[in-house]
């Protein structure tokens, strides 16, 4: 591809104490592309994307956005680059309602500078209506929601703010088949809008269906990046488990 990648993660490393969680990993992402991140538990997938979302500071390596070196030191920096993240842990404030969570850190305000709960709830109803039409618990704290409902709040938060780069860390882990379908449709739609999406998912079938390319990690190291159309699900499983890329498919 001749166009500049939306995101380039170059040679990223980060260690926690003695654990080399991410070890010289490089992945890129183009506009309108979905890149799947695969790997066993503890492979370093979440840690890698947290360097991009500003949750962690990498020890070494470089992040480029649209070809330009990007300085991402905290989640606010990432938001400034239009990077939105759905964390595996969802990162919701349990004591607040859906609207407060959706707009957390970016509240809508009235002319007097006070938070405008009415407007925020109204917007939340709109976006949730698209994602999860059965959702009605707008005035309960999110601690009163089911796992799937909480997940839809986290997804709504990420898609509401016109992201250019979307990071989804196991977005469908707690969702039922119908809601999972809805997220899949959403990913397709966002792709058409030219977003770049990193999708972490343990389901290789889902990755093959939704992603253009897949990056596989094992023990903090990158096993390889492949075009999903060039490989079978068994190939992907082989990469995850054995850590070997099949001959002649590296993308």
């Amino acid at each position: 591809m001749a166009e500049t990648p939306l995101v380039e993660l170059n040679d990223i490393s980060i260690a926690f104490g003695g654990v080399q969680a991410v070890d010289h990993v490089s992945v890129d992402l183009y506009p309108g592309e979905v890149v799947g991140l695969l790997g066993h538990n503890g492979a370093g997938k979440s840690t890698l994307i947290k360097c991009l979302s500003g949750a962690y500071r990498m020890d070494s390596g470089e992040i480029r956005i649209n070809g330009e070196p990007a300085e991402i030191n905290n989640p606010r920096d990432a938001r400034a680059y239009n990077i939105e993240t759905i964390y595996q842990t969802l990162a919701l404030a349990d004591n607040l309602d859906a609207a407060s969570n959706l707009f957390l850190g970016r509240e809508l305000t009235t002319m007097t500078g006070l938070v405008d709960d009415g407007a925020m709830e109204s917007e939340t109803r709109k976006v949730m209506g698209r994602l999860n039409p059965y959702f009605q618990k707008f005035s309960s704290p999110v601690s009163a929601l089911s796992g799937g409902q909480r997940q839809s709040v986290a997804i709504a938060r990420a898609v509401y703010f016109n992201a250019r780069i979307l990071i989804m860390d196991e977005p469908t882990a707690a969702l039922g088949p119908q809601e999972t379908r809805m997220v899949a449709d959403l990913i397709q739609e966002l792709k058409k809008q030219n977003l770049g999406i990193f999708l972490i998912d343990h389901d290789v079938h889902q990755v093959k269906e939704l992603c253009d390319r897949a990056a596989v990690m094992k023990n903090g190291k990158l096993v390889g990046v492949v075009k999903v159309d060039d490989v079978t699900t068994d190939d992907l499983l082989g990469m995850i488990i054995a850590g070997k890329t099949p001959e002649g498919v590296a993308a």
Binding site: S53, Y87, N95, L96, L104, V115
Partner: peptide
């Protein structure tokens, strides 16, 4: 809002860009 969010889940508050 940030006071209550931080009390409810400090990590979530931090990840939402709250200082």
């Amino acid at each position: 809002r940030y006071i209550f969010a931080t009390g409810g889940n400090p990590d979530a508050a931090e990840l939402s860009g709250i200082n």
